[in-house]
Each structure stands twice: as structure tokens, then as C-alpha cells.
Design a protein around this nucleic acid. Structure first.
Lengths: 96, 96
DNA sequence: CTTGCATTTAGGGGATTTCCTAATTAGGCA
DNA sequence: TGCCTAATTAGGAAATCCCCTAAATGCAAG
């Protein structure tokens, strides 16, 4: 959960996730979409992989990254537990 | 959004958020719940405040922190946009 | 004003992040 | 084998993070 939210805390990594929403993409194509060097993007992809958010699959010389929805759902579950379950007794305690 | 997810990436800060779910708490009471010094907890509270996740309210000499749900909902919206809107055309691409 | 309590700010040490360039691995093809 | 392309790992500099101790602030009461 720790690495998961940390991975989500970087704009480049969030954008990669958004790109992968439409389907898997090759590492090079992902890197080309950013204004930074390829090794740097590889680093971000590794962070996402560590967080369980993406998984790489090799196809010949190219490596495609696929979004892993289940990890996103873990984060989602935490946030929903916050917004979803408020104690009704102090919802409007200081209304004036 | 950046500071928001970064704030969520630390276990102590997530724990504080969970504690605040039941209602506002004094800084000292929050600090007492952890095995670290009070200044350190103040630092975490500042991170949460920067992220818009909590807001402090002074009452005499004590300072109470209240959870700010709307910030949580921002993060929620991002994650839902990932899980919620998959392109149906490539959802089952390798089904042969 | 002085004392006391709740809380924050200041400053520093050690670990981690983020980016770069240079070197390396891995696969496909002559 | 040797070469080209795709992609990663290695290593290092600058910034940031996390935790601590020590000092400061804000408020209330005597």
C-alpha cells in the first residue's frame, strides 16, 4: 500500500497509468511521450511495477507494459473506507 | 494531486486519516497514539494539511485537526477514472 | 509580567527520490 | 559471428524526506 500510493504520487507515473488505460504499450512508445530520457522513464516503469500497477511482457525485442487494475482497486478500497463510513453522531456537531 | 498522493504514501499519515474519520482530534492526542516524537507527528500533520486532507482549528491552547473529505474524493475520482472507464475493445484481446 | 502547558518551528544527519550520461543486456537478422 | 535496435542497469549529483533534539510561539491564569 505504501509503494502503491508512492507510485501514484508522481505526475509522470499517473500519466503513464492513464496512457495504459487504453491498452498495453511498448516501453519506447511510453518513453517517447515524455520530455525526459528513456532510462528515466524506465525508472518510473519500475516504480509502477514494484507497486503492482503494471506488468511487463516481452514480445521479441520489444517490451510491452500492461496496466494491473487490481492494484488500483486496493488503493480505491482504502479511500472508499474513508469517505464511505463516517460516524453519523459527529457529522454535524458544530453547526451554527 | 501530487502532494495528495504523496501524503497518502506514508503509513503514519494514513493512520492519522483513519483516526480522524471518527471526528476531529487534538494534536497531542494524535501524537500520543504513535511511537515517535510530537514534532515528527506535527510534520506529518503539516504534510496532510499541505495536501488539503486535514485542516487545523484552534480552541484556546489546543489545536484540533479535522479530516477534509473533499481532498479524499479528488484522489478517489482519479482512481475511479482508471478502473471505471476501460475501453471495451481491448478488454478481451487475447481470448483465443 | 511570569509561569505553565499545548503545539509548532529550526536545524541537522542519514536515507531515499529523481534525473542525467555511460555502459550493458537481449533479440533479430545479415 | 557481428551489427543494429529495444530496453535496462550502473553510478552519481541535487533535491527531498523522515526522524531526532533544542528552541520558540500562543494562550491562559495567577
Amino acid at each position: 500500500m505504501n509503494t502503491l500510493f508512492k507510485a501514484l504520487s508522481h505526475p509522470v507515473r499517473r500519466r503513464i497509468i492513464e496512457m495504459l488505460r487504453k491498452g498495453p504499450m511498448a516501453s519506447g512508445d511510453i518513453a517517447a511521450a515524455f520530455d525526459m530520457t528513456w532510462p528515466t522513464v524506465t525508472g518510473h516503469l519500475n516504480a509502477l511495477k514494484e507497486a503492482g500497477l503494471v506488468s511487463p511482457e516481452r514480445d521479441g525485442t520489444t517490451i510491452r507494459y500492461r496496466l494491473d487494475i487490481s492494484a488500483v482497486e486496493e488503493a480505491l478500497a482504502f479511500l472508499l473506507s474513508i469517505t464511505g463510513a463516517r460516524s453519523p453522531s459527529d457529522g454535524d456537531k458544530d453547526r451554527d
